[in-house]
Design a protein around this nucleic acid. Structure first.
Length: 927
RNA sequence: GGGCGGUUAGCUCAGCUGGUUAGAGCACCUGCCUUACAAGCAGGGGGUCGCAGGUUCGAAUCCUGCACUGCCCA
C-alpha cells in the first residue's frame, strides 16, 4: 500500500491557488510510464466498439505549434471521452519522414560544416539523416507527451521504418502490376533549389507584380508578301524564347488570319518556327499571339503535344541556361532574361512593356520560383482510384464535418490529374525499379533482383528517385496495422473511426488516404472471411476538419510576422488545462480561432475555481471525519440520484448534473467542442459553485447539536456530484481532474486514472423539471432581494427583513426554503403579505413581488430611471405581442404552442407593466 | 477567372430545420478582503443582427442583389 502511494504522483497539500506547473509534469510522466493508454491487440474482435484515430503524422523536422496543440486537444478530448464511454480506443501516434523538409534540414547542417551531400555520397548522406532523425526527430512527440495526449506510445510508427518500407514497396509493385504506375516524359514542377520534381500541390501560387513584354518575331516572307512583317507576341518570361518552337494564335482571331501557315524567324536564335492555330489561345490576352515553349510551360507542352512540336530544353536542373541557349549558356534564368531583353532592344525587336500581375508558383518548402521542366518521372494513373474515392464519399461511407468540405473534396477529385510520385531526393523510399544497361527495360520487383526480367542481363541499376512522402503517409491507415499481412490489428482497428485534421492537407493526405485505402483494402477480407465492400474499405468513417489558429488579431501566425505563439510557453504560463479549455471553447466549426491570452486567463481562473471548490470540499470531509462522519468511497463513481425527501438544492443539483451530462454528450457527439465546454463551465461555475456550494454550507453542520444524518446526506450528495463533475471535466482538463480525483479518493482510487473511469451518462428519470423550476423561482427571489438591497444602498453585511406577496404554492416553497433565502440574500426575516408592498426597495416579477425593508431613502432619480426603462421594455413587448395576437392570419396559421406561449407572455407582460406603472406613480407621489 | 465561407454587444464568438422580449465569455461600470476561491463575490450598463429589396401571419434565421472581408483552386 505504501508502495502505491510513493508511485502515485498526487500531492496532498492543496495550496490556496492552483499551480499547474507543480502537478502537470508528474501526471504526464505517470500516464506514459503506466502505459495507461496502450491498446494491445485484443483476442477477439467483437467486444467493445473500436474507436481508432490515426494521428496525422507530424514532420520529424517539426516543432509543436499552436495548430498541433489545437488539433491534439480536440482529438484528445474525443478520445478520452470515448474511452470513458467504454469504447476500445486507440490513438495511434507516429511521425513522417518528410522527404524534402528533412533533406533540406540536414543539408543546411552540412553547409555549416562546409560540406555538401554530393561530396558525401548517397549512402553516407542517408546515414547522416538517420542520425539527425534519432537526435531531433522526436521533438513533437515528446511535446505531446508533456501535454498529456492519451496516445498509445507502444505503437509509435515512422513512415520509413522497415515494416512500413516493405508495405510501400508492395503498394508500388502492385500498382505497377495493375498498370496504374507508369513512367513518362512530362512537364513537371521543378524546384531548382531542391533539384527535384514536386507535385502540383507542393506549388504555392502567389500574385506578383510583373511585366508583360511584347516581342516582334519577323515573318519569313514568301513570294508576294510584303518584305518586312512582324508577328508580335506577349510574354511574361522572355528568357524561355530560346526554346520556342512555334507561335500560336486563336484560329478565329481575324487579326492573324493572313499569317496562318506562315513561318517566323526566331529572334536571337535564328530558328524557323511555324505559326499555328490553337483554340486554347485567348485573343484577349496580350497581343493574342503567344510564343510556344513546350519544354518550359505546361500549357505550351500541351499545345506542343497537340501539334507535334519539338520540345527544346534551354535550362539545366539549377535553372541556369544550358548549351541549347547558345551564347546565353551558363546564365541564371533571370540574368538571361535581362540580357535577352537588352539584345532584343538593340535589335529593335522589343515592343511595348506593360505592367502585369500574374501568379508565380513557388516551392512550398523553400519558396524558390518553380521552373516547369521536361523530365522523366513516375506517375500514378489516378482516375481509377479517384472513382472509388468519390463513390465512398457520395455513398456516405465517409462523412465530413463541417459538411462543406465534401464539396471541396469532390471538386478536386473530379478534376484530378495524374500524380507525379517520383522525387529526385536521397531521403525517402527508393523506387523499387531497376534499369537494364543492356536492353534498357525496367524491372519492378519486391526484392532486389539479380538480373533484368526482360533480357536476363545482370547489368541493372536501381532507380535513383525516391517516392513522394505523401505516397507512404497515404497508406498509413492500413500499413500502420501491419498490412500487407492480414493481421488481427487490421481486423479490429480498420477502418479507423475518425480523422481530425486541417483543411490544408485535405488533398495532400486525406484524399490520398481515401484513394489508396479504398483501392487496397477492398482486397482484404473482413474478419469473418466475407468479402469487403467499399463501406469497410474506407480508411476512416468520419473526417473532422478543424479550423486554423490565428493570433488575437486574427492574423495568421507566421515566423516572419513574429506573431507565433509557442504553445509550450503559453502552457507554462497558464497551465495545459486552461489552454486546452480555451481552444475547445473557441472551436466552433468552420470558424478560425483567434487565440487570445485574455481568454486563457479566464479559463485559468476556471481551473482555479475548480481547485478551490475541491479545497472547500476536502475541508468539509476533514471536519466531518473529526465528527465521526465518513462517506464510503464506494458511494462514489456513479451518477447520483436524489431522494424525494432530500432538500431542494440537492435534488436540483442532481437534476442539473444529469441534464448537463446529456448536453455535453450530445455536443461531443457532433464535434461541438465549444458547446460542450460552455455547458460544463456554466454548470460547474454557475450552478455548482455559485448556488449549490453556497446553499450546502447550511447543511454542513457537523457540530454535536446538529442533525448528523442530514449532514452526512448533504456531504454524500456533495461528494457524488463533485466526483461526477470531475469525470465530466476530465476530457477537457485531464491534469487538474486527475490530481483532484486522486485526492478525493485519498490516493486509493478505484482505477489508476480518472481517464479510466466512466463518463457520466444521464438518466432521463433524474432530470426533474419541477424541481428545476422551483429552484429557478427561489433564485429569482434571491436575486430580486439582492437587487433591491443595491437600490436602497444596504451595506453588504447587513441582514434585512423582506416582505413578499405571492401565490400560495410559492409561499409554501419559499417558507420551506427560508433558510436558503436568509443566507443567500442576507435576509433577517421573511414576511408574507397579501397586498402589493408599497414604498421603495420593491422588485416585481410574474411570480411574486418583494420588498426590502430598510429605512434609508432610495435614490429616487435612479429608481425612476430604472422603472422607466422597464416600463418602456414592457410596453414594447406588449405592443408586439398584441399586434400578433390581433392578427387573424397569425392565429390561424401559427402552431398552437406558439400562440399559447405568446398569450401567456402577453398576460405576464401586462401584469409586469401594470405593477411597474403603479410603482412609478407611487414614486412620483412620494417625492 | 471559378468555387466556398464570413459580416450579430468594445473584443472573440453562439444562436439547430423561420416562432414568445437575440445569448455566452472576456472587457467595462458600481459595491464588497462575506475564511474554498480578489485568478473571487454581488449588482449593473451595452446590440435597429453589413446594406437594400423579396417570400411569410411572423426573418438574425429562407431567397435575390449590393458592399466589405477571408480562404481554396486555376
Amino acid at each position: 500500500m505504501s508502495q502505491q502511494i510513493t508511485e502515485n504522483p498526487a500531492q496532498r497539500e492543496l495550496p490556496r491557488t492552483y499551480d499547474p506547473a507543480s502537478i502537470e509534469d508528474r501526471w504526464a510522466e505517470y500516464w506514459v510510464r503506466e502505459h495507461l493508454f496502450d491498446q494491445p491487440t485484443p483476442r477477439n474482435t467483437s467486444d467493445a466498439p473500436a474507436f481508432t484515430v490515426l494521428l496525422p503524422p507530424p514532420n520529424v523536422t517539426g516543432n509543436l505549434h499552436m495548430g498541433h496543440m489545437f488539433e491534439h486537444a480536440e482529438t484528445d478530448i474525443l478520445i478520452r471521452w470515448r474511452r470513458m464511454c467504454g469504447d476500445r480506443t486507440l490513438w495511434l501516434p507516429g511521425t513522417d519522414h518528410a522527404g524534402i523538409a528533412t533533406q533540406l534540414m540536414v543539408e543546411r547542417q552540412l553547409a555549416t560544416e562546409g560540406k555538401t551531400r554530393q561530396q558525401m555520397g548517397r549512402e553516407a548522406f542517408v546515414e547522416r539523416v538517420w542520425q539527425w532523425k534519432q537526435h531531433y526527430g522526436g521533438a513533437i512527440l515528446s511535446q505531446m507527451k508533456r501535454l498529456g495526449a492519451s496516445v498509445d506510445w507502444s505503437r509509435e510508427y515512422f513512415t520509413m521504418s522497415d515494416q512500413l518500407s516493405v508495405a510501400v514497396k508492395e503498394v508500388f509493385v502492385r500498382l505497377h502490376e495493375q498498370g496504374l504506375i507508369y513512367r513518362a516524359t512530362y512537364i513537371v514542377n521543378w524546384c531548382p533549389r531542391c533539384q527535384t520534381a514536386i507535385s502540383d500541390l507542393e506549388v504555392v501560387h502567389e500574385e506578383q507584380q510583373g511585366k508583360l513584354w511584347e516581342i516582334r518575331y519577323p515573318v519569313i516572307p514568301e513570294s508576294g508578301d510584303e518584305p518586312v512583317q512582324f508577328l508580335t507576341v506577349a510574354t511574361t518570361r522572355p528568357e524561355t524564347m530560346l526554346g520556342d518552337t512555334a507561335v500560336a494564335v486563336n484560329p478565329d482571331d481575324e487579326r492573324y488570319r493572313h499569317l496562318h501557315g506562315k513561318r517566323l524567324r526566331l529572334p536571337l536564335v535564328g530558328r524557323e518556327i511555324p505559326v499555328i492555330t490553337d483554340a486554347w489561345v485567348s485573343a484577349d490576352f496580350g497581343t493574342g499571339a503567344v510564343k510556344v515553349t513546350p519544354a518550359h510551360d505546361p500549357n505550351d507542352f500541351a499545345i506542343g503535344q497537340r501539334h507535334g512540336l519539338e520540345a527544346i530544353d534551354v535550362m539545366d536542373e539549377t535553372a541556369h541556361m544550358n548549351a541549347a541557349a547558345g551564347v546565353y549558356a551558363g546564365l541564371d534564368r533571370y540574368e538571361a532574361r535581362k540580357r535577352i531583353l537588352e539584345d532584343l532592344e538593340a535589335q529593335g525587336l522589343l515592343g511595348a512593356i506593360k505592367d502585369h500581375t500574374h501568379a508565380v508558383g513557388r516551392c512550398d518548402r523553400c519558396k524558390t520560383v518553380v521552373e516547369p521542366r521536361l523530365s522523366k518521372q513516375w506517375f500514378v494513373k489516378i482516375q481509377p482510384l479517384a472513382d472509388k474515392a468519390i463513390a465512398a464519399v457520395e455513398q456516405g461511407y465517409i462523412r465530413f464535418t463541417p459538411e462543406q468540405y465534401a464539396k471541396t473534396y469532390f471538386e478536386w477529385m473530379r478534376n484530378i490529374h495524374d500524380w507525379c510520385i517520383s522525387r529526385q531526393l536521397w531521403w525517402g523510399h527508393r523506387i523499387p525499379a531497376w534499369h537494364c544497361g543492356t536492353c534498357g527495360q525496367i524491372t519492378v520487383a519486391r526484392d532486389t533482383p539479380a538480373q533484368c526480367a526482360h533480357c536476363g542481363s545482370a547489368q541493372i541499376v536501381q532507380e535513383t528517385d525516391v517516392l513522394d512522402t505523401w505516397f507512404s503517409s497515404g497508406l498509413l491507415p492500413f500499413t500502420a496495422f501491419g498490412w500487407p499481412e492480414h493481421t488481427r490489428d487490421l481486423d479490429v482497428f480498420y477502418p479507423t473511426q475518425l480523422l481530425v485534421t486541417g483543411f490544408d492537407i485535405l488533398f495532400f493526405w486525406v484524399a490520398r488516404m481515401i484513394m489508396l485505402g479504398c483501392h487496397f483494402m477492398l482486397d482484404v477480407p473482413m474478419p469473418d472471411g466475407s468479402e469487403r465492400t467499399l463501406k469497410d474499405a474506407v480508411p476512416f468513417r468520419e473526417v473532422y476538419i478543424h479550423a486554423l489558429v490565428r493570433d488575437a488579431d486574427r492574423q495568421k501566425m507566421s515566423k516572419t510576422k513574429g506573431n507565433v505563439i509557442d504553445p509550450i510557453e503559453i502552457v507554462q504560463k497558464y497551465g495545459t488545462d486552461a489552454v486546452r479549455f480555451t481552444l475547445a471553447s473557441m472551436a466552433s466549426p468552420g470558424t478560425d480561432i483567434a487565440f487570445s491570452e485574455a481568454r486563457t486567463e479566464g479559463y485559468r481562473a476556471f481551473a482555479n475555481k475548480i481547485w478551490n471548490a475541491a479545497r472547500f470540499i476536502f475541508m468539509n470531509v476533514e471536519k466531518a471525519r473529526e465528527a465521526g462522519i465518513e462517506v464510503e468511497p464506494s458511494a462514489l463513481g456513479v451518477m447520483p440520484a436524489a431522494a424525494s425527501e432530500a432538500p431542494l438544492e440537492a435534488r436540483w443539483i442532481v437534476s442539473a448534473l444529469h441534464r448537463v451530462a446529456a448536453e455535453i454528450n450530445a455536443a461531443l457527439e457532433s464535434y461541438r467542442f465549444d458547446e460542450a465546454a460552455s455547458y460544463v463551465y456554466q454548470f460547474f461555475w454557475g450552478s455548482f459553485c455559485d448556488w449549490y456550494l453556497e446553499i450546502v454550507k447550511l447543511r454542513l453542520d457537523f457540530s454535536d447539536s446538529a442533525d448528523k444524518g442530514a449532514a452526512k446526506e448533504a456531504l454524500t450528495t456533495l461528494l457524488r456530484v463533485f466526483e461526477s463533475s470531475l469525470r465530466l471535466l476530465s476530457p477537457f482538463m485531464p491534469f487538474l481532474t486527475e490530481e483532484l480525483w486522486h485526492a478525493l479518493y485519498q490516493d486509493e482510487p478505484p482505477a489508476k486514472s480518472i481517464a479510466l473511469s466512466r463518463y457520466p451518462q444521464p438518466q432521463p428519470a433524474s432530470i426533474d423539471a419541477e424541481v428545476e423550476s422551483g429552484m429557478a423561482a427561489l433564485q429569482d427571489l434571491i436575486v430580486s432581494v439582492r437587487a433591491g438591497r443595491k437600490d436602497l444602498g444596504v451595506e453588504e453585511k447587513a441582514q434585512v427583513p423582506v416582505r413578499v406577496r405571492t401565490a400560495a404554492s410559492f409561499e409554501a416553497l419559499f417558507t420551506a426554503n427560508q433558510a436558503i433565502i436568509e443566507r443567500m440574500a442576507r435576509v433577517s426575516a421573511v414576511e408574507f403579505v397579501a397586498k402589493m408592498p408599497e414604498g421603495s426597495g420593491a422588485r416585481t416579477t410574474t411570480h411574486f413581488d418583494v420588498q426590502v425593508i430598510y429605512e434609508k431613502q432610495i435614490d429616487a432619480a435612479a429608481e425612476r430611471e430604472r422603472l422607466g426603462k422597464d416600463l418602456a421594455k414592457y410596453e414594447k413587448g406588449l405592443a408586439s405581442a398584441e399586434r400578433q395576437l390581433n392578427n387573424e392570419a397569425f392565429l390561424a396559421k401559427a402552431p398552437a404552442h406558439v400562440v399559447d406561449g405568446l398569450r401567456k407572455q402577453e398576460a405576464e407582460t401586462r401584469l409586469l407593466l401594470e405593477k411597474t406603472r403603479r410603482a412609478l406613480e407611487e414614486l412620483n407621489h412620494t417625492k
